[in-house]
Design a protein around this nucleic acid. Sequence first.
DNA 1: TTAGGGTTAG
Length: 608
Amino acid sequence: MADIFTQQPLQHQQTFLDPHTQLGQISETHFSIPLDPKLYISALLNCTNLTQIKQVHTQITITGMTQNLTVANKVLYIYARFKALDDAYTFFNCMKEKDPVSWSVMVGGFAKNSDHENCLRTFREIIRSGLPPDNYTLPFVLRVCRDTVSLKMGREIHHLVYKYGLHLDPFVSATLVDMYSKCGVIEEARLVFDKMPTRDLITWTVMISAYAECGIPNESLVLFDRMREEGVVPDKVTMVTVVFACAKLGAMNKAKLIHEYILRKNFTFNVILGTAIIDMYAKCGSVEAAREIFDGMRERNVVSWSAMIAAYGYHGYGRKALELFPLMLQNGVTPNRISFVSLLYACSHSGLVDEGCEFFHSMWDKYYVRPDVKHYTCMVDLLGRAGRLNEAMELIEGMTVEKDDGLWGALLGACRIHGNIELAEKAAKSLLEIQTQNPGHYVLLSNIYANAGRWEEVANVRDLMTKMRLKKIPGWTWIEVDNKIHQFSVGDKTHPQFKEIYEMLMGLIKKLELAGYVPDTNFVLHDVDEELKVGILYTHSEKLAITFGLISTAEGMPLRITKNLRVCGDCHTFCKLVSATERREIIVRDANRFHHFKKGACSCGDYW
DNA sequence: TTAGGGTTAG
């Protein structure tokens, strides 16, 4: 047998694989050695497993064809594609001659297989050996910077483009945009994007997706329009990112327009696009429209089922979410960790404590999905909301997986609802030990202390926040009026009609109070002036006020709704009204969930 | 010969 890595060709003619035949069928016939590299390349590309690759590689070595760089690079490439990086690297090291393609394939092989360390090490070797980096290698290295969120390194790689006088082609630019946005500096991503002389579809898609992901989905839609104006035709991947942006925006009119566009342009309705549309409709307030899409899908995978379960969950329809689970199993779909997060979340927000506990226990026993910290967090939330705080604490104490700030935050939130200051302090101590960077947790803690009148602790938490340079970022709300999207935050005065909006708001507050609504300012952020508290309680979302304004024109509605409307602790500050789908129902959205207020009852059972 | 973009939760 020839040594396929040292590439020593055999001296004598051997029985070997006939590259003309189908791979995997060994030809026993002797024939003269074909020396056409194309045959070996196509044989390599036709391999379906590692054994076949090694067989072809052996033949290539026997013939001495490894001396041909094109063939050798293809051997490297195919090993990397089948994740056989050890084989690829051993071969790479034995290659007597390497060209930029060899280096690029090796760097790319490591990058695609998430071997960040070796990818960077190989890239440094290129630079050290005096070879210039090229436009083929840079996207791979930038990909590592993106995946490891290494902004500093990403900037250094970007600098190499100028240092080596490289042309910023669409590949490098697209990965730079992607890297900067995933590293949280969307402005730098946009700078690269704006500087490109011409942008191809992928760069547009990356930029559209970047805005949606970093919480500026309205800009995604603006870019989508601009892209089409410039004559770039979107493909289905672009449409998925646009649908995702619309889901983030929660704007139903836009959602419908985009859905119509997808149908009109005959985009293939695959699982990914279908699932994205389910999510979009659900997040725009219509769980029914989401279900319609779900029912109409030809193929559904675990993501589609989980998305639908989650949709019912955050709309407060826990039972419907749970009904989907056995159907999912019947359809031969295996639940994953996210399916269980969605199920437990649905239970916790519909007060289905027993059902939640059952799922939690069966997920590992029956479905071999090991509970991670997120599942424990759902359970703490479930037990905590139901007032079973001690059980929640016992669960945490018995955990073998690493605890994170979200877990303690859930316990802290439950302590706030039930006014359990002792347990709150335990949770707070652990949160402070972890040094959570989530300002919401500190605000929560400060509020608990404030409610207990422990002002010294309030001041300590505030000091800590200042020292850690943490600031609560205000939530944004978007509202669609006549197909135009308006953006607001609490106390916002940037809207051209802000005077009219606040006048209407103040009028509504008066009506609310006349209707007997007494605001509970206990849970309003304590970092605002006292006189603003009541205002914030109502103005947490101007959208809420505006929609109330619209509803108030409907006969008899405002008093009935306002009398019965009790928003939960979270909603006091973060509630967002999405739309009034019918006169007798309004849907309120807080950070991640929806409340359906129908004839004075909320679909979410917790707060009623 | 080698390169870039998409779905579910928190």
